[in-house]
């Protein structure tokens, strides 16, 4: 089984978000980048398929050279090969199209992507990719088993879960649950050394059209001060929630 894990390179969850160039660009200054958490769960599940079922695991990112440390980290966790499509990622459809080319060239059976990237929160790339390559697509995936060319997946739905089955090729949008938090691996020294020698192939982009553009960013308006209520006067809280907030 050939697995491709799509990795989005995102600001660390603790990052302060700022913008430059007239609020048109995200300010990368001083920001630490990481593997998108949803993708890290997917990558870890892919390592399980590698160990238990002999799968090969490649990772791919659409982005410029500055994403390479993130791909190296994925190699250090245990991926076999990394691919970087050499173009900035600016639109979900464009990214999906670039990834479609990579999947077709590599004839992957299973593509593991994340439910959403925590920067752009599009939740669009995996579904678009699946339909571009005419593969099955399962979103918000919290469990995945593969037997031969058949996949059984658990999907989180509002208020519960459902179990689905589908044939490969399959694209999933994964998240926590694919593996547990405690299964995530911090790369060890040996992994990091080996990652340096593993292939990181830079491929040219295809001519992908864009369908949307982020024209401007804005930060939320600063919030007013908290109204403190004395712990011995909870009637006041109820009054505020009822009359002020109209929430109860």
């Amino acid at each position: 089984m050939k697995i491709l894990v799509c990795i989005s390179h995102v600001p660390d969850t603790t990052s302060k978000i700022n913008f430059t160039e007239g609020d048109s660009q995200f300010d990368k200054n001083g920001v630490q980048f990481v593997i998108n958490p949803n993708d890290e769960f997917g990558l870890t599940r892919a390592m399980w398929f590698k160990e238990k079922q002999g799968a090969s695991v490649d990772v791919v990112t659409v982005g410029e050279a500055d994403v390479e440390p993130t791909l190296r980290k994925a190699l250090a966790i245990g991926a076999d090969n990394a691919i970087r499509v050499n173009t900035p990622a600016t639109d979900s459809f464009q990214v999906a199209k670039e990834l479609a080319k990579v999947v077709e060239d590599g004839s992957y059976d299973l593509v593991i992507a994340g439910r959403e990237s925590i920067d752009y929160n599009g939740g669009m790339v995996p579904g678009m990719l699946a339909k571009l390559i005419k593969a099955n697509f399962i979103n918000t995936c919290v469990g995945l088993e593969i037997e031969g060319d058949k996949a059984t997946a658990t999907r989180e739905i509002d208020g519960g879960k459902e179990t689905l089955s589908a044939n490969l090729p399959l694209v999933i949008g994964g998240q926590k649950g694919l593996v547990e938090e405690s299964d995530l691996k911090i790369p060890n020294m040996r992994g990091i050394m080996m990652a340096r020698k593993k292939p990181l192939n830079v491929v040219d982009p295809v001519d992908a059209d864009k369908r949307s553009e982020a024209v401007k960013f804005e930060k939320p308006a600063p919030k007013g001060d908290v109204k403190l209520v004395d712990a011995d006067n909870l009637d006041e809280l109820i009054d505020l929630l009822h009359n002020d907030a109209k929430a109860i």
Binding site: I17, N121, S212, E213, F217, E218, K219, P220
Partner: peptide
């Protein structure tokens, strides 16, 4: 106008 960066910002998106 849409949210981005998990509600840490908003983003104006134009669709072509």
């Amino acid at each position: 106008k849409r949210t981005a960066f998990t509600n840490k910002a908003f983003n104006m998106t134009s669709i072509s």
